[in-house]
């Protein structure tokens, strides 16, 4: 008992506890700011809802969809990926049979090629700057969002085109299933809603080219 308590008081553990509390507080603050920004944006939308500004609004709307600044809805697909059921033979590298970031990247790439208009993974909107990286058994997307398996990709677009592309013989899904034993299931959705990007999208280094 006493020893266990002493261990809990060791510097490494204290350090982690402090950091964890800080991360939690920072997340909370971030979320509050996020809802404040959303509220302001809605207010601005309401104020600018005037005849004569319609054309500008339509333009803004399509930029916002691409930039991930609004939630979107439409028909699409849901692709669920989970780790392999294959048991590697002795001497084989078991790491080859677990889901990798590159598998997710390839599925996303296939969906994009098949005309996906908006994408998300486990509810995280994917934008032009979104990365997908392995971090131990979890993956990190959009810099701070940690996701755990199963990984559910949702895509809005023509469902049949996307499903056909994924299921092509010798295609991405075939390879994942047959070769690496990754579990893949694909579902057609008549309507799916994808949330807006969480966090701010501001450029620190990039500026519009001055003519």
């Amino acid at each position: 008992m006493r020893l266990a308590q002493e261990i809990a008081r060791t510097v490494p553990i204290q350090r982690i506890n402090t950091l964890m509390a800080e991360v939690q507080a920072a997340r909370k603050e971030r979320d509050q700011l996020q809802s404040e920004v959303n509220r302001l944006q809605q207010e601005l939308d309401a104020v600018t809802n005037q005849e004569g500004l319609k054309e500008l609004k339509t333009e803004l709307n399509s930029y916002r969809i691409e930039a991930g600044l609004v939630a979107v809805t439409g028909p699409g697909v849901e692709v669920t990926l989970n780790d392999s059921t294959l048991i590697p033979k002795p001497g084989q590298n078991p790491n080859l049979y677990v889901l990798h970031d590159e598998d997710i990247l390839r599925v996303l790439n296939e969906l994009k090629a098949a005309g996906a208009e908006v994408l998300a993974i486990n509810g995280e909107r994917l934008v032009a700057t979104s990365e997908v990286r392995c971090a131990g058994p979890t993956i990190l997307v959009n810099k701070t969002k940690r996701l755990a398996a199963p990984f559910v990709i949702t895509a809005i677009g023509n469902p049949d085109t996307m499903i056909n592309a994924l299921n092509m013989r010798g295609g991405v899904v075939d390879t994942l299933r047959q070769f690496w034993g990754i579990q893949v299931s694909i579902k057609k959705l008549p309507e799916v809603t994808i949330p807006a990007y969480k966090g701010s999208r501001r450029f620190e280094y990039a500026h519009p080219v001055r003519e």
Partner: peptide
């Protein structure tokens, strides 16, 4: 940019 399937969710 062209969106044939996706439409913005009105949050108004």
């Amino acid at each position: 940019l062209r969106f044939d399937y996706a439409r913005a969710v009105e949050t108004g």
